[in-house]
Design a binder for these strands. Structure first.
Lengths: 145, 145
DNA sequence: GTAAAATACTTGACAATGTCAAGTATTTTG
DNA sequence: CAAAATACTTGACATTGTCAAGTATTTTAC
């Protein structure tokens, strides 16, 4: 086994590990009125200016038709409003309703609690270390694009 | 020192980032005869001694019925053999066939290539850093259990 | 030893999630 | 202005996952 092979094995080990971590965190969607994908879509809607299906698809990688239906569903559930952009009438601009924002903020709070719980055993110093390492990984992997 | 809310936001940012990374890597299942879940099941089968549905469920979190069908499908595809354990005839012990092992190893090779590609732009030193940080995160988060 | 409970898995029915391709409305390009 | 491109929608369908009831076997409690 080459050195490189070991390296790859360690990275894959980390991926499996972290997939599980994120998986555990995502379990909470089970207790919420949103699927994981719906949650991600709602996140984008609430954090994107002049949001549209197009913009969502720029950050999520989701089938166009599927997204269209999710958005329709959100409309039915009173979470968002869709209006054609006056600038380019092909686009529907998407804005969360008051209720949509409220639901998103609940979702958000629950995610925060889970993360909070995840790091509950760590000391202040360890938390700082964790963040540094996370940012470091991000920085390194962003080079690969 | 970072405020707690910011801290959580940074962790969640990392989670979103890394979910995307893993998501990209998992795209390769699209070009393979396995779904992501099937791949994970096959991984467990090939890396678990005296493997059984029970043992798989200890590491994967998957519906019992669903797993049962996946395994049946693997049998149909000639990837595994199931035999009742002589020790406890409720259990079916699962062994990969020669072909199963071969397919798994292909899957494995492709995963490796993807990882290899992911780190292609990093210098030796940076790769070492990446691994250290990954191991560090793992160590820190394992404390939380 | 035997009845009841527990375990390991299977099966049927079904719901949720995701994909593909063709279609509509609108804008851009040549 | 016609053709191509863009943004989204819709229908048909496949994949993936869930729930609950069922079978075979073993363990537990008497």
């Amino acid at each position: 086994m080459t050195h490189k092979q070991e390296m790859i094995e360690r990275i894959r080990g980390f991926n499996r590990f972290y997939t599980n971590i994120v998986g555990l965190l995502d379990q909470h969607f089970l207790d919420s009125p949103f699927s994981l994908t719906e949650g991600r879509v709602l996140y984008e809607i609430c954090n994107t200016d002049e949001c549209s299906a197009k913009k969502i698809r720029e950050s999520i990688a989701i089938d166009e038709g599927y997204l269209s239906r999710i958005l329709d569903d959100f409309v039915r559930r009173g979470l968002i409003k869709k209006t054609r952009s006056p600038v380019d009438r092909r686009l529907r601009i998407i804005v969360p309703t008051k209720q949509g924002k409220r639901q998103f903020s609940t979702l958000n709070d629950n995610s925060n609690k889970l993360i909070s719980n995840m790091i509950r055993r760590l000391s202040a110093k360890e938390r700082e270390e964790l963040l540094e390492k996370m940012d470091g990984i991000r920085l390194l992997l962003e080079k690969t694009k």
